[in-house]
């Protein structure tokens, strides 16, 4: 396996795993959203993300060519082999935490997909072009919710501020990428993590400023890293639930 291929597989797992775990967290909202309209909307975003995850993982499985398919990658990998962003594995908390996470992720996701639409890898460009339409809408919704909660009532503002404080440290992974990603960008395959990080920050700054939410200082690296499989403890529990059936019945056909 050449090293570009290796970089690419890791990159596809970063994209696929992040979308899948974010989608899984949204599934947890089922029946518990603050309004019925919001049930529909949260599930819709989740549906888009799990669909995207399947596309990325399909491609990753093909490149891995070790007999595993997308489902094997999703349901039979341990947390150390998962490559998702730390941000998306964080518990949902209240609606402010959920929306803060969603917004910070969407703003990153949009920039990555924009970059990937120009990928010389046409498979990637195709998946990204479709996903970009979906994520443009996700970001529209989540940024509006950040504004509503940040600029709504005293209570909602207090909760949004607390939510940002709680999850901000994980944004270090959104503001910068790995060397492998820089190499992929140079090869014309991946999105440039430096550009993504700058555009992400610009978007976050603008949305926060619109409702006078202070922008915290840049987060710094702190031992954990989703890209290398160094996760928070939350991921293992999430996977235990998500992977239960294929793990408990390894020979089953669903």
């Amino acid at each position: 396996m050449n090293s570009t291929q290796d970089d690419l597989i890791h990159y596809l797992l970063l994209l696929g795993d992040s979308a899948l775990i974010q989608g899984q967290r949204l599934c947890e909202w089922c029946g518990k959203a603050p309004a019925i309209e919001e049930e529909l909307a949260l599930m819709n975003v989740g549906l888009d993300l799990v669909g995207q995850a399947r596309n990325w993982l399909d491609y990753a499985a093909e490149l891995l060519a070790d007999g595993r398919d997308a489902d094997d990658l999703a349901f039979r990998r341990d947390e150390r082999a998962y490559r998702n962003l730390l941000l998306v594995e964080q518990p949902n908390g209240d609606f402010a935490v959920t929306m803060a996470k969603q917004f910070l992720f969407d703003a990153w996701h949009l920039q990555v997909l924009k970059g990937l639409c120009d990928s010389t890898d046409l498979r990637i460009a195709g998946i990204a072009a479709k996903a970009l339409k979906e994520v443009t809408y996700h970001l529209r919704r989540s940024s509006e919710w950040v504004q509503r909660l940040g600029g709504g009532t005293d209570e909602s503002r207090r909760r949004m501020l607390a939510a940002i404080t709680q999850v901000w440290r994980f944004t270090v992974e959104l503001a910068s990428g790995s060397e492998a990603e820089t190499r992929l960008a140079a090869a014309g395959i991946g999105a440039d993590p430096a550009q993504v990080g700058a555009a992400w920050l610009h978007q976050v700054e603008a949305t926060f400023a619109s409702v006078e939410l202070p922008l915290p200082p840049a987060a710094s690296h702190f031992y954990l890293s989703g890209r290398t499989g160094m996760h928070t403890e939350h991921l293992g529990i999430l996977l235990a639930e998500m992977q239960f059936l294929p793990r408990a019945y390894p020979d089953a056909t669903w």
């Binding site: 309209e37 529909l40 909307a41 819709n44 529209r140 509006e144 509503r148």
Partner: peptide, 13 residues
């Protein structure tokens, strides 16, 4: 709650 949300909710539904 507002017009933008009304469009989005209508789109979802």
């Amino acid at each position: 709650a507002d017009d933008a949300m009304a469009i989005e909710n209508a789109r979802e539904l």
